[in-house]
Design a protein around this nucleic acid. Sequence first.
DNA 1: TCATCTTCTGACGGCGCGTCAGATACGCTC
DNA 2: GAGCGTATCTGACGCGCCGTCAGAAGATGA
Lengths: 213, 213
Amino acid sequence: MARTKKTILGADGRVLGSRAEVTRTRLLEATAKLLGESGVLDLKIVDITREVGSSPATFYQYFVDVDAALLALAEQATRDESPLVSHLDNGWDAADGLVRAGEFVDAYTTFWDDHNAVLRVRNLKAEEGDPAFREARSKANLLLIQAMSKMVEQAQRDGRLPGSIHPFVTATAMIAIIERLLPYRNEIARRGATPTALRDTVAVLLYRSLTGL
Amino acid sequence: MARTKKTILGADGRVLGSRAEVTRTRLLEATAKLLGESGVLDLKIVDITREVGSSPATFYQYFVDVDAALLALAEQATRDESPLVSHLDNGWDAADGLVRAGEFVDAYTTFWDDHNAVLRVRNLKAEEGDPAFREARSKANLLLIQAMSKMVEQAQRDGRLPGSIHPFVTATAMIAIIERLLPYRNEIARRGATPTALRDTVAVLLYRSLTGL
DNA sequence: TCATCTTCTGACGGCGCGTCAGATACGCTC
DNA sequence: GAGCGTATCTGACGCGCCGTCAGAAGATGA
């Protein structure tokens, strides 16, 4: 099968030339920037186009509406998430398991910090029931969750974790911990937990829940 | 100290008469309804007032903006959350600990189902950095988190949990699990986990992480 | 009934939305 | 490097929501 470069399409489905691709990218970057600065609720198409020095009409040449742009950003984020599985390969049963758990937490934290505004919106829209965002979200986490599920199954086989827990649910719960605690960092800090304590605690929680060790 | 009924104020700070309180309540109910039906991003003040058969100008007599109404809803939700601590009283160290964990999960699920649209917005705004919503959110979870922290500390004293985990962080992580997994239920179901499996798994995860048993 | 205070709303200027028709810039051919 | 066809951009418009204010309508009570 020939390796085909993903062709990018405009709002009307036409194939984009190179000039257009640049514009589209700039629009997406501006969207991400504004999202980080002031939140989804204040995101306006006029502002996005103002940011790149063009007009609202241009925006609609690339995206049918704001959601389409947000979805595109979410899909970009997904691409950056996949490499994180490497931290889960072969499980954490060996002697360096806890160390590897810590490294995974670090890697996820970096990923999160790079994309947090976008991920927040993706999750919001997914939770509100939008099918496209639901899809994007599942797809993004699937690799991680599958790898974690395997770890749980192994631990159950070895009798380190009870059979009463559902591997997929457990894995999802671990993602929940890490996703949720990161935006919550400042608040946690105010309660007297250092960043290191946060990192280490999350690592231990994941390690224990996934390996039973 | 005399027991004072909380006086409710309009947007300009004036004390509301009984007729006004009714209107305010109806506005809040309509807001919550629309929030559940179509999400924050599509929430419009005109729609809220249309819903109660009044005019936009009326809305502004009670709330300076939509956020103020959302915050009021969030605070209502907070009031319903406090009673959940009873499920954590005295810890889960006794023989019926796992059963109590399950009951807690059930109670939280009910609470969540009653308020999910509002809680989602509260969390979004909190994560986006809005101080009022941050405050509301911390306050809401504080009782639960404190109670859970105590459980962790006890388990650490008894040598059932490692000293390397931070009690407050651990407690927050448990809230994260439960808050996150609930809106995710359908998706989890599609992966073959029954509602019971979900409930039981979450119960076991909390039980193990908080008691070390 | 009338005076007064409370609550409601019609109407308005301002602004973002989403669309179109026409303008502009690009790149290709000769 | 002139001219042409296509790709890309935008000004301008009608529509609907925002937030405000002045005055209308309704309640209260003397």
